[in-house]
Simulated scan of single mutants.
Amino acid sequence: MKLKNRFKILLCNAYVVLLCIAIVIVLPLQFVLFLVKGNKNKLVRPLEDRAFKTLFCINDLRKNI
């Protein structure tokens, strides 16, 4: 086997190993971000609702005056 072909095989194997490492690192991070994002919506949504209700009330009062 030629030296050039061996280097190509080693390079392909290195890419496969790096891809596996990236998958192993990224999957738990995506799960954690999903949990944080889900809880964020539960925490932030009521505050946003209150803020928008207040803004709409202020806007309605301005129209009435």
Rank of each mutant, 00 (worst) to 15 (best):
V17L: 14
L43S: 04
L10M: 08
A22F: 12
N41Q: 13
L3Q: 11
L18W: 02
F34C: 04
F34G: 05
I25H: 03
A22K: 03
N13A: 15
K63M: 08
F31T: 10
F34W: 08
L35H: 06
T54D: 09
F7K: 08
N39W: 08
V24G: 01
K53D: 15
K2S: 14
L27K: 07
V17R: 02
L29I: 11
E48D: 10
T54A: 13
V26E: 06
F56P: 00
K42F: 07
F31R: 12
R6N: 03
C12Y: 10
R6I: 13
V44Y: 05
C57D: 14
K42G: 04
P28R: 01
F31V: 14
L47I: 14
L43E: 06
E48A: 11
D60Y: 04
V24S: 03
I65K: 07
I9Y: 02
I65C: 07
D49N: 12
R45Y: 07
N64K: 15
L29N: 09
N64I: 15
K40Y: 14
K4R: 11
G38L: 06
R50L: 12
R6T: 07
L3R: 08
G38K: 09
N59V: 05
P28G: 03
K8H: 02
I65P: 00
V24D: 00
C12F: 10
V24N: 01
F7H: 08
N39C: 05
R6Y: 04
A22M: 04
F34Y: 10
D60Q: 11
R50M: 09
V36G: 00
V44K: 06
N13V: 08
P46W: 00
F56I: 11
L43Y: 07
I9N: 04
I23H: 01
Y15L: 15
G38V: 00
V26R: 01
L35G: 02
C57T: 07
I58M: 03
E48V: 15
